[in-house]
Every structure is written in structure tokens, then in C-alpha cells.
Design a binder for these strands. Sequence first.
DNA 1: CGCCACCTTAAGTTTGCCTTAATCTGGCCC
DNA 2: GGGCCAGATTAAGGCAAACTTAAGGTGGCG
Lengths: 220, 220
Amino acid sequence: MRILLIEDDQSLADGIATALRHTGYAVDRAETGAAGISLAQAARPDVIILDLGLPDMDGVDVLKQLRRKSISSSVLILTARDDLPSKIGGLDAGADDYLTKPFAVDELLARLRALERRAGLGLSAEIQVGDVSINLASHEVTRAGESIKLSRREFTLLRALAERPGHILSREQLEDKLYSWGEEVASNTVDVHIHNLRKKIYPEFIQTIRGVGYKLGPAK
Amino acid sequence: MRILLIEDDQSLADGIATALRHTGYAVDRAETGAAGISLAQAARPDVIILDLGLPDMDGVDVLKQLRRKSISSSVLILTARDDLPSKIGGLDAGADDYLTKPFAVDELLARLRALERRAGLGLSAEIQVGDVSINLASHEVTRAGESIKLSRREFTLLRALAERPGHILSREQLEDKLYSWGEEVASNTVDVHIHNLRKKIYPEFIQTIRGVGYKLGPAK
DNA sequence: CGCCACCTTAAGTTTGCCTTAATCTGGCCC
DNA sequence: GGGCCAGATTAAGGCAAACTTAAGGTGGCG
């Protein structure tokens, strides 16, 4: 998925861009509204992350111009001001979501995934962890180019873990991903699926934290 | 982007025009074929939305005249469900896509975006997946030059899948493509059509993702 | 009016997955 | 070192999803 980041604060932009690229997104950057608009036309990103506090023009105006030029990318607003009026104005002008600074990068990633899902775009919605890549749209999983065939539950589990690499998820949390409310299950299903995943990918790909849960991480 | 809407039904035209303007398109309107043709020459729209059921002249003739005057706008046909087979047959003339009434506005917008994208890339109204090519306007499907005859439902299904190769569509989503509001169906129709498509093309062309849906995969 | 194509149902069959549960392994604390 | 506990492993049965096939209905077209 292609993302255009319009943000004038250098260090913040650096941080976000790095995180996004690390997650597997293609990132274009602009530091002014004007540059952002022309880049949006040229690059046709799936999502535009737009800071409202730009030096050259008001963020909401940038958004309006984007829409006027019929650029239909999803737009996620960043704003330092925590004031409600500006948020409302942004959403009215055609933003799809907003986030107030400061924010956690995880939060940003979560919202991007939501946008992706909502827009139904997800053309190349892909998560990369180590040499394993997980395509959300096609349910394709590959390791170093080798295709790996996963069942539904396995895929769900893997995705849950991959959405936050390094983060530990408890058995309970994982079960919540697998089962809809009210059809809880009482056995070691998660264990079994984890085991099967390890067999299909490679054992060290999923790490056990005794008494806590599982996490994804490069073998270390 | 500039759009010319040729539609005689006032209230429908109002609805469409409003939605389009709200999305950021510039909209011109005509209520007769004759008016549409002259407006097309004057305004040079990027896309023409053309209702086939006009009072003064046959929609297909409008289209032919437009082409004869070498107006190269993309043309999206609107047609009542009933006269689909008879009229679509004569469309080789050069429509780029069509939509049967009644339709959801979202659907219209999606198709406009598709046209836009296609026009921007200078592509024809044809989708290629593997050695299978699907002509949106003429409803022709060929595999390696061999023509394949599909029924209406089969074509609709195939197109839905082909618009995003690799992307998984659920049964539910596919049903939405087949049935307009309020004529939902409760059976395994989709399964059966998929089965028939596989028989006519080749089985592996459509892949099943158990518990999720179907997707198109390249010939291999 | 009657044929033909297509669509929808529905029933029967197949297939692959999920769960269960029983057993095994290895760390950890006494 | 021995026992305990968390997690790993394995295999089998059951079940639901998907496939297949065929019959009945509908509407278009000759």
C-alpha cells in the first residue's frame, strides 16, 4: 500500500516514515501543502496522512483541494491542537479519520489498518516480519518468496501476532481473535495452531513466553 | 474531473448529480440525446454517463454519434435491468463500462474511479488476468484468443473478481454484486455460478479460500 | 406457442479443518 | 534428583464448507 505523508516537522516525519516502511508500506513525503497536493496527483497514494499545522497553508484547505481535484485517497488527519472544532472541520471536508498529537505509532498503524479495511483497498496490504510477508487481501503468506499455505485459523492467529511484532499476546487474547463472542472454546486449540504455524514457517518464528503468551520476533 | 450526465429521469439525475458534486466532480446535465451530444462537444467531459432509455433517441445511437464526432470521453452506460441483453449486444461501439439500474451510488462512484484510473494509465476497458481477458464493454471473455461464452450472472461474478485479481471476495460480497437491493437470495447460487465459471474457463482460475471467499489467481 | 438458455433450489457427496484429548518434553522449584 | 506444571506433540473423529449434479421454473425469442 502507498502512503503519502504531508508533515513539516522533520523529525516526526522521519519517525513515522521509518515506522511505516518497516511495516511494509511505500511512503512518499511532502513538507508543504502545495507539494503534498501535487505529489498526491502524481503518486495516487491509497492513504494520505495530513498534518493540519503546515507552514504554507491551512490543512483543511489542503484537504478540500485534494477532494476538488477528485483525489479519492483515504485521508488521515494529524493535529496537534486538541480542539474539537478543527477536528469537526477536517472530517466535514472529507477526512476519513484523525489522530491528535502526541500519539503512539501503534495507534497510527492501527488506524491505517482500519482505513485500509474500510476502503476495501488493501491492494498490497502486506505485513512484513523478517523474511515472512503476509498479504491481508489475498491471504497469501510467503517466506523468502516461498508460498506457505495456511488454514483460516492459522492465518488469523498469524495476523494477530504480526500486527504487532515483538508484542506479547496471551492465549486469551488470541482466542478472542479466533472466536466470536459466545462460542468460547475450552481446550488447547491455540497451542495446536501455534504448533502448526511453527511447523509450516519455522519454529523460532513464534516465541513462547512462559506463563505469559506468544510473540513474533526474529530469531534472536 | 468533468462529467456529463445524460439522463431524462429528473429525480434520479438530481440524486446522481448531487452525489457526484459532493465527491468533487464537475457535473453537466442533459435530458435528451440531442442535448447531450451538443453538450459533449462543447464541454468535453472526461466521462459521459449515458442512460440508454432516453425519450428522443436510442441510447446506442447517441453513443455511436459521439464516437463519430470523435469525442473520446469514457462512456459509462446506465440501463434498466430488463433491456440488458438486447441492448448491450450493440455496444461494441465503444462504451467503457455499464451499470444496471437500480444501482448503489457507491457502485457508481467506484466505477468512475476505475474509469479515471484506467484513463490516466491509457488503458482500454479490458481486464487481463493471466491468459484470460475480459472486455467490460462488449462482455467478451477470451482465453488465449479462444472466445468463452458466459451468461449474465457468470460475467458479473467474473468481473467482480477480476477487478481485483488476488483480492478475496466473500460470498456475501459477490451476492451483493449479483442482486440489487431487496431481491436477496437464499441459496448456493454463487457456488453454482463459480462452479460453472470454472468449468468454462479452467478450475484453478478461481481459487477457494475456505471460510473466507473466492479470489482470482493467474494461470499457472 | 414451444423451444432454449439460464437461473435457482435442493439434495447428496466430498474434502479439509478444527477440536479434542491423551501423551510427551523440558524447565523450575523444592 | 524428583515431582510438578506449562507447553508441545500427535492422531483421530466429527463437522461444516464447498462441490457437484440434476430437476424445476422463468422468460426471451423464433
